[in-house]
């Protein structure tokens, strides 16, 4: 029962992505129209597993060294932690970026469109020491890697 629900969400997700690529490629749709709705459940989930289930329909992934995460060993300031994710896995549809120790672990989803290379960088907030996790969805498979980042000055306080 539970598995079925997850599976359905997952299929719906990948179908939508296919439509996006075609529509965008043909230049028919305005960007707002092709965007999937912001997945609130995934972003407000309190655990990495719930966040991934919310985003992908499943939290299970295999570790892959083909995903590289560049982030500092020690964050100078948790409010601004530079992260770069690269991968040479073929056919990447989505990259999820998580910070495991954050109150809500899911930080970002990057959906690859036409010609996109799996090479994204951003700066994130980390509340305390934890792992930066990248989960990649490619050809129906989920792969992931992680890197631990020590945080001495938390980036979520005020």
């Amino acid at each position: 029962m539970n598995t079925d629900t997850k599976r359905r969400v997952f299929l719906k997700g990948s179908l939508a992505a296919g439509t996006v690529a075609v529509a965008a490629g043909a230049g028919l749709l305005a960007p707002q129209a092709v965007l999937a709705a912001w997945p609130e459940k995934a972003f407000t989930a309190k655990s990495s597993e719930d966040a991934l289930s919310g985003a992908f329909g499943s939290a299970a992934s295999e570790t892959s060294e083909q995903i590289k995460i560049k982030a500092p060993d020690i964050a100078e300031n948790g409010a601004v932690v530079p992260v770069t994710i690269t991968s040479d896995i073929a056919g990447i549809e989505t990259i999820a970026l998580l910070s495991t120790a954050n109150n809500a672990p899911l930080v970002a989803l990057f959906n690859m469109g036409q010609g996109a290379a799996a090479d994204v960088s951003t700066r994130i907030k980390m509340g305390k020491t934890g792992d930066v996790v990248a989960v990649v969805k490619a050809g129906g498979k989920m792969l992931s890697n992680r890197k631990s980042v020590k945080v001495t000055i938390g980036g979520c306080g005020g």
Binding site: G27, L109, F110, G115, T122
Partner: peptide, 24 residues
């Protein structure tokens, strides 16, 4: 006119956000 990427974010992306990406 072609969409090369879209991203969805939480409030855990740093203030004054930075984003870099590549496309072929």
């Amino acid at each position: 006119d072609a969409e090369v990427m879209n991203a969805q974010w939480s409030g855990s992306v740093s203030k004054n956000p930075y984003l870099a990406f590549k496309f072929n």
